[in-house]
Amino acid sequence: MMVNLYPLKELKLPIVAECINPDIFQGKKPAEIEKLEVWEGNKQKKLGELFKAEIAETEDASENTVVVIHGDISRVKRIGAGMKNGEIIIKGDAGMHLGEEMKGGKIAVYGNVLGWAGSMMKGGTIEIHGNAGDYLGAPYRGSTEGMKGGKIIVHGNVGREAGAHMHKGIVKIYGCAGQFAGFRMHGGTIYVQKDCEARTGACMVEGTIVVSGRIESVMPSFTIEGVKKKVKIEEGEVVETPFYLFLGDLTENGRGKLYVAKDKNPHLSHYEKYL
């Protein structure tokens, strides 16, 4: 089953619409979908007041429910929150808390995404073809429950604290990453193909961060361990270039691994004297 959602107007107020979720849409008729409840600003509304829903039967006979949203929905929060199955495709920008606490299924965004995408994620895949905001895959305020599984792929850049408190899973960033990528990380893998701002891996305890581009600086509380010829990101993806390997963060008695491409970071060459 494929459900197409079309915004009926330019959305200006913040909208909370956790009902946009394949598990909830599954087996419903368009009229039923349009009756689902959402909040627009401080008013409770029906989804149908903001979106038109159409069902296109697919040839795919599987049970998979695919939700396709056409247009800019950067004001709409919590899309796909907690979803377990199915697929959401967003042809435009998406709002905050996309796929929060997601357990399975797939979300693809052909546009940019605001903060907290994949926050507290446990499984499934989020692929963002544009940029992602701050706190990608990070937990809620005060919580240490970061990503526990699943995969986030961002083709553009990401903001601060991507993968903070991560325990398991993988975050792949093909653009640049902001400060504090992998902050207080406990496991899993973060790969940044381009450049990284400062404080990458600060307070990390375990896990792996791989930076293929230039890193602004390495925290003084990391020690150099050696130079590696290549690093495996995941099954089937290996980056073959020399990497400095740093261990840290000493302040947390951590043994996290921070790989930084040697060629792109001549300003770190002074560490070699410790090898």
Binding site: Y140, G142, E145
Partner: peptide
């Protein structure tokens, strides 16, 4: 104050 994660 310490625990937003406790109440949200």
């Amino acid at each position: 104050l310490l625990r937003p994660e406790d109440h949200f």
